[in-house]
Structures are given as structure tokens and as C-alpha cells.
Design a protein around this nucleic acid. Sequence first.
RNA 1: GCGGUCGUGGCGAAGGGGUUAACGCACUGGUCUGUGGCUCCAGCAUUCGUGGGUUCAAGUCCCAUCGAUCGCCCCA
Length: 419
Amino acid sequence: MSIQKPKGTQDLLPGEIEKWQYVESKARELCQRFNYREIRTPVFEHTELFQRGVGETTDIVEKEMYTFLDKGDRSISLRPEGTAGVVRSYVENKLYGEPDVSKLYYVGPMFRYEQPQSGRYRQFHQFGIEAIGSVDPSLDAEVIALGYTFYREIGIKDVTVEINSVGNPSVRAAYREHIQQFFAPVKDQLCKDCQSRYERNPMRILDCKIDQKYCEGAPTIVEHLDEECRTHFARVQQYLTALGVPFRLNPRLVRGLDYYTHTAFEYKAAGIGAIDTIGGGGRYNGLVGQIGGQDQPGVGLALGMERILLVLQAQGADIPAEKPLDVYLIGLGEAAETRIVGLLHELRLEGLTAEKDYQSRKLKAQMKSADRYKAAYVGILGDNELEKGEIAVKALATGEQETLSLSEFARTLAARQRG
RNA sequence: GCGGUCGUGGCGAAGGGGUUAACGCACUGGUCUGUGGCUCCAGCAUUCGUGGGUUCAAGUCCCAUCGAUCGCCCCA
């Protein structure tokens, strides 16, 4: 059997790739307006970076990483998310030495070893931003607003923004105990998953679809925030309102990465089957220090490209397709075919999109081909035209045909197509 | 890691033990000695994901395996 692509990966072929290019170009353009600059970091890093950054006990690190030993016996992992690498680079390149907040964005592949399903792949792509160097809640709000604006501008409808505060480490430790106490009496009635969540990540029980009945009246983390956390969260909400970003408080929102502090948020939209999260992020004060830098607070987000495209498709959004051809050239006979090659190049140098046949097909087949390419013009050159120094030019849309002189052919069509 | 469904030409899809594997789309050629989109005609799978088994006989039944897809966990 022939070789197939690895499970959970995809080939993005012409026809599909245009959609990616559209979404990516919108992302870059938006980042420029918000003054975020691109950063490209390796797709693999030392495994330790993710263990320290993402967190030893997270699902991502525990069971989803592509980890291997390289020839120097170093443990290497394909990046499962973007933040750790960006923060590592921030530290390694001493970007904290710069006077302003570092506002960075990235677009690229991430890797997680999971069973694929709708909207989930082993190699998937994220567009993300990171703003490092400030605790200002207006920065949290800006990050959330950028994501929201992005969805709006590429044409996704009905995006919901959910926010929560997950406090700081000491708030969270205290809250964890509260919630364990709350569920302790019903612990044995909880579903199998929640029984393990009880130890590992009790906040997740609140998210469970099966055990909702036991969740009523459960303490929320928001009720347990200390003064500093509460103030920060309130300010973020004020700024979001000022920015015109509608949001919903979700006291049960918990993210799967350990590094979040204070603000956590997710974007949701329907259209990907069982999955509705299309992006998320939060603040990560403490992560930079954990990775070994002089401590700096940060906030960021990551949006799933595949999920964006799935939602766009589900909503029937029209995404720019491939561009039609300006000119298709047909040469009849050896002399004409030779001349066609030069003419084709002239057209291309003039900036037009031009093509010819490479399969020695009949005139009729070449016409069909031009039609498939949606060519605006077909140039037909035969012996009789060649003798007169002319070329027959047919406009496919109208069927009208004219004769142009070979010397001004390229310039004439270029002028028309540019206009 | 676990569970459901599915794997037949470039694509969509019939066939559910019996001699030559429907049909549609696309494609190629002809109808039209140098002009596309329409019509009509012709051509286009020594073979049904892979491996093994049952049988006189296997796309068709059984097992395994790989893959796709959807779901669980978790998330993008």
C-alpha cells in the first residue's frame, strides 16, 4: 500500500489553501493595527520547557505531547501550544530589556497526540498573541478585544466571549479546598471522571455534563478572590465594556493549562460538532519567572485555525476563492508554439496571470482548459496569424474575437486587465 | 487510551456468497481539418484499504490490522 499521511494530519491542497491564506492575511493585518509584531519560534523545544511552562499535571503534558530523544539524547517535544516557546524566546533574547511592553503574534502548527475528531487534529494551527510586561487590566481587555474583532472581521457570526478570573496561586489553593469540601459528601455519587477530577482538578467538576445536579450552590472562585484579584477582574470588565466587547461571566470557566492567573477567557461558536471553543487565553503572571527569566506578567490568546475555518464553512461565509486566469495562450504548429512561450512570458512580466497547455492537446481541449481556468482571454496563434504578425484574441465571457498585433498584444491586455 | 459508523475507479455511489464489478460526475477522443460553456457517440477499476481465514466459489461471511469519520476524556 502507498504511504499515507500520519493520523490526525492534513494536506492543505490548492482550492483549500486560499481560505487559509485569507484568514492568515486578515490576522496579520489586524495585528499590525493593534501593534503586535510577528515572532517565529521553533516547532520543537526541550521537553522541560513545556513541563515547566504548561504544567506537569496538565493533560497536555501528561499524555498529549510528541516527545522523543534526539541523536544527542536530548528530550525534545513538538510544541503543543505557542505561549511557552514565545516566553522562552522572550527570556532568552532579553526582550524584557526593551522599554515597551512586548506585543507579539504568531501563526503556526502545534502538535498534540490525541484521537482526532471534528475540529481536533494532531497537527493543528493556531494564531496567537502574547503581550508581556504589564499587569494593566486594559491589556487583558485589549487581547480579548483583538480576538473578538478578528472573528468579526473575517465574518464569523455569533461569537460568545466568556470570561472568568482564576485568581492567583494562593487564591486558587484556598478555593480548591473549598470545592473539595463542597463535593466531599457526594463524592461517591459523582461520575467516574469526576471522581478523578476531585483529586486532580476539582474545579473541572463544575464543567461536567453528567454531574450538574450536584453542582448547584457550589462555591465559585469569584467569591473567593482576594482584593487585588477582584479589582483586576472588575477593571477588565469595565475596559471590555468600554471596548464594546460583549461578554458573559462564566464562573466555571477553567482552562487546561496551569499557567493562567487572573483573567481566563474563551470564545465559543457553534458549527464544529461537539466542540464549541474556537479560541481562548488568559493572563499568566508568573510564567516568565518560572521559565527562568526576570519575572514579567503577561497575557495572551490562541485561536484555532481549523476551528475558525470549520465555523466559517458551517455559517456559509463566502471566502475568496482562487483567482481566475487573465490569459490562456494556444499555439498551433511548431513555430507558433515557440512564439507562444515568449508571449506568455511577456504577459507574466506585465503582471498578468497567464497559462498555456503542456500536454500537446488539441485546440478544443485547450479551449476547455482555458474555460476551466476561467480565463478572461484566450490568445490563439496559428501559422496565418504568425505570418501577418497578429494574434487572434477571444474574450471568453462574451465570445467576441478580435485581432491584435503581436508586438502590442501583451501591453494591450495588461492595460485592460489592470483597468 | 476507550466506544459507534465506515473503507469499491480521479470524485460520488450500487452490488450483502456464484460466470464479463451498475450508474452519475469528471476526464480523454469523436460528432465540428483552427475555437470553450449545449447535444449525441465512444473510451476510461485484471479489481473492491491491507493481511490472514472459512468456502467448490469472497467487494460480499469471520478475524486481525491500518486509515477515515463521529463521540468520550481534554482542548485549538
